[in-house]
Write a protein that binds this DNA or RNA. Structure first.
Lengths: 250, 250
DNA sequence: CCCTCAACTATTGTATACATAACGTATTCA
DNA sequence: TGAATACGTTATGTATACAATAGTTGAGGG
């Protein structure tokens, strides 16, 4: 039974980590469920060592929780955990925006941000509600947030923001997906885009406090919309990222 | 050569993690230095598997950095990395204080905070500058910050604060140690204690913005003092937590 | 004398075997 | 009939062997 095709291009550890993360986010592994190492070995195709490494990393990432008696289980999140995570990310992004504004950013560095902004403008003008448009928006939005984070030029802060965004529902893309389930989606995206515009303006003019405030507001908008989306349960099956909510979905 | 005495009371992974962390923070492993797994096996007494698990955890903790070609090296930090990390923690603690204020905290829950506050008051009144007093202060201060963090009742936020404090120089204790090297140490501690007093007051009166602002200021005080301490290089050998600074100490 | 290529060594990534602890089940005794 | 204990099975923690890659050193040619 040596039909084990090993993909040498990427480490087994990374492969296992990606596979397990997919299983968790897709809901194949339910919140609270104990993860069997052997089963993970079966499904990922990696052996126990890389699987264990992946499990440790996913624990640190916040998707898994260590069980005292040994092993790991899929972490379960309350609705408040999720909104707190979003606000947390907004606070960190606010700090990043402030750092960018206070420390100064050259026109050259702002260029990609502005391009991204323009691309989103185009998108919002073109197709109102198509699935493709949303998918493009998610990509561009994530790019905008990543670029903004980079502008802080603070590796520790960038690192923390990445960690805070690791939880899918806390990531910019996550909340956009939640918003997309709402009837007012188009309006919401336009308001979000206005926030993007303002934060660039504030950074350009070195208004640190303003830049910080608008990013916080940006996250609060996301929280509000998430609450709305959770009330409108109809489209929620479109949101695999929310598979981690414990009581809310049961 | 089976004289390997295994301590079954605590897992080999944890043992290795603690041992390696000690080696890093004590400066036995210098910043930028590649960590040899085999050498780590020798010094920690654990075998390669738990050592590797410990290395992954320490990487996630921020003390190590993965080398693209494989293995890990001790992370090196710039002076700005450190001040950013402190400000980052302050921002998160500010959010925690605001959550506590906005969500309301019972008198019963504030009790331990107040006791801690009183204990620090006593300490500041008693012995001005003894080493024991500082060590007690470090403990009490860490306790105060931990209790405050808990008041937010937000597991995701608590988790993030813990992670931000994992870097020793970013932890409350770390900056107190830095301060203790300064001649103005006593004054600084008194001001810090005033911050503690104000944040409790703000939380009691449900003044979220004020609670948040004071915790941020608290961290900025720490940043300022760290800068001072770094100029006063005389006592810096007392600060093993700063062994991670790269250019500053070389 | 320097640069390049090749071989070797050392170290990491992976796989698996072994031991130990925990959980479930069945049987027995009260 | 119920509860408790013992045994068995299964899963995790640990150790180690093997394989592959990267880094280093030496030798030969330009």
């Amino acid at each position: 039974m040596a039909e084990r095709e090993v993909d040498r291009s990427v480490s087994q550890t990374v492969k296992a980590q990606l596979a397990l993360r997919d299983q968790i986010l897709s809901g194949a592994l339910r919140p609270g469920e104990r993860i069997s190492e052997l089963q993970a070995v079966e499904t990922t195709g990696a052996s126990r060592t890389p699987v264990r490494m992946a499990l440790v990393r996913l624990e640190e990432e916040g998707l898994l929780e260590a069980i005292p008696s040994g092993g790991f289980m899929v972490k379960a999140f309350s609705e408040r955990d999720i909104s707190d995570s979003i606000e947390l990310r907004g606070t960190l992004e606010g700090l990043a925006a402030r750092f960018a504004a206070e420390r100064g950013v050259s026109a050259r560095e702002l260029e990609p941000l502005k391009e991204c902004l323009a691309a989103i403008d185009d998108l919002l003008r073109q197709v109102p509600n198509s699935v493709d448009a949303f998918s493009s928006y998610v990509t561009l939005n994530a790019r905008f947030h990543a670029l903004l984070t980079e502008l802080s030029r603070s590796p520790p802060l960038i690192r923390q923001i990445d960690r805070a965004s690791a939880l899918p529902f806390a990531s910019p893309s996550g909340f956009v997906m939640a918003q997309s389930a709402l009837p007012e989606a188009q309006q919401i995206l336009i308001i979000g885009q206005e926030h993007h515009r303002v934060v660039i303006d504030a950074i350009e003019n070195r208004e640190g406090a303003r830049a910080e405030a608008i990013m916080r507001e940006h996250a609060r908008l996301a929280v509000r919309n998430l609450r709305l989306a959770l009330r409108n349960r109809t489209h929620l099956d479109l949101l695999p990222a929310l598979a981690l909510i414990k009581t809310a979905t049961n």
